[in-house]
């Protein structure tokens, strides 16, 4: 088996992107840690032919849902982000506004965009994770990206 260190190095950024696409920056870090700790525990029993990235994304999604449930009264960051104290993205992230836009997408679109465009999973696998048909996942991802293009074009300095 591949040493777990290499799994963390290779897939850590992707898992963080997925977590950040569906959670606040702070919660995303908690979910990332929970995801890899849980994965580390199960890793020796993972099948040799397993798709590691899909496996990690599935765990990350479950951890994200746990976090969202514990934050039930403020489920997901959307809408206006206060100046200077953004929880979306990190302070030195030049594209923080993109994360804000992703955070403002409807739930299913946001996940389909994150899993397909950020993670690179095929629509069929995205559908298996978020539920519904492959066509529905494809449509939600496409609608999400179209909405992001429109929204991004309206912010200063943004070009679609």
């Amino acid at each position: 088996m591949t040493p777990f260190e290499l799994i963390v190095r290779e897939h850590g950024p992707t898992v963080l992107r997925v977590c950040r696409a569906v959670l606040t920056a702070h919660d995303a870090k908690d979910a990332w840690s929970e995801t890899f700790l849980s994965a580390l525990q199960a890793y020796p029993r993972l099948g040799a032919d397993a798709n590691i990235e899909a496996w990690l994304v599935t765990i990350a999604k479950r951890k994200a849902i746990d976090v969202i449930r514990t934050r039930a009264r403020t489920p997901v960051p959307v809408g206006d982000v206060p100046d200077g104290a953004s929880e979306l993205g990190i302070p030195d992230d030049e594209r923080g506004e993109v994360w804000a836009l992703i955070g403002a997408l409807p739930d299913k679109q946001r996940k389909c965009v994150a899993y397909h465009y950020l993670v690179g999973l095929p629509h069929s696998e995205v559908a298996a994770i978020v539920g519904g048909t492959t066509d529905a996942a494809r449509r939600a991802a496409a609608d999400g990206v179209a909405a992001l293009r429109r929204a991004y074009a309206t912010i200063p300095g943004g070009t679609a």
Partner: peptide, 11 residues
């Protein structure tokens, strides 16, 4: 949608 940055190394 191609401009989303990779999470930074320090993080």
């Amino acid at each position: 949608m191609t401009n989303i940055e990779a999470p930074n190394t320090a993080d």
